[in-house]
Amino acid sequence: MGKDKKKQKAKDKKWNYDTLPYRRGIGIALFNPAGRVFVAQRLDSPGPAWQMPQGGIDKGETPLDAAWRELHEETGVTSAELIMESEGWLSYDLPAELAKTLWKGKYRGQEQKWYAFRFTGEDSEIDIEGEHPEFSAWKWADFRTVTELIVPFKRPLYQKVVLAFGHLAK
């Protein structure tokens, strides 16, 4: 067995999915005036993998500050107003094989604070081709059925988001 394979085997032995912490992050349900929600197709996922904007919280940043930053970075949107936030933190687990590579194998998933925003601008403001694009397409979707668009491992989280913010959809 080569030196690199031995190192990887030792690293795999130390890595324990069950003891990994959650990465702190935020999620955003951006509603348009018609009560539909923004979803976008991920660039890095084969097949349909839609999601609402989300991301990590930078050091020294509050969750709400992170939500505003991520909203702008991922969608270009600045014309929005905060409607509400989730009562607590909502989490999802990555599949173990994905957890090994994503975020350098440091986290088992994310624990997120979710925010609902009302989009007050025009659709032409939305720009998913920012400095570090994450999406290939976007659309306004029926919020009550958004869980059907999401990758399976995030569906339980999205079901909780729909329960928390469902009354905001029309």
Rank of each mutant, 00 (worst) to 15 (best):
W50D: 09
P63L: 05
K104P: 03
T19N: 08
K106D: 15
Y92M: 06
H132E: 15
S79F: 05
P63Q: 03
Q110L: 12
Q51T: 14
G60Y: 05
A34M: 14
A116R: 00
T75Q: 13
N32E: 08
M84V: 13
A10Q: 15
W15T: 02
E73P: 00
G109N: 04
F31S: 01
G47D: 09
K14T: 09
K9M: 15
V37M: 09
I128M: 04
L43R: 14
V77Y: 03
E73G: 06
K104W: 14
I26T: 01
P21N: 07
D123R: 03
K9C: 11
E111F: 07
I28R: 06
Q41P: 00
A80Y: 01
W89Y: 12
R118T: 05
A66G: 03
D12Q: 08
Q41V: 10
P95A: 07
K59R: 14
G121C: 04
M52R: 03
G35D: 00
G47E: 10
K104C: 06
A29Q: 01
E131Y: 08
S124I: 13
A40H: 04
V39S: 04
E111N: 14
P133L: 07
P133H: 13
E97F: 13
L71K: 00
M52D: 04
V77K: 08
F117E: 01
G121H: 07
G105P: 11
A40S: 14
G105Y: 15
W15N: 01
E61Y: 00
I126Y: 00
P48T: 05
E134V: 03
T75L: 11
K14I: 04
F38S: 10
W50N: 12
W89E: 10
E122A: 11
L43C: 11
W68S: 03
A80H: 02
E122R: 10
N16Y: 10
A29R: 01
N16W: 08
A116Y: 01
T19K: 11
P46E: 14
G130D: 09
I83T: 06
W50V: 06
I126F: 01
D127M: 01
A96H: 10
L64W: 14
L64A: 05
L43M: 14
K13G: 02
Q112C: 15
F38V: 13
E125M: 06
A34T: 13
T19C: 02
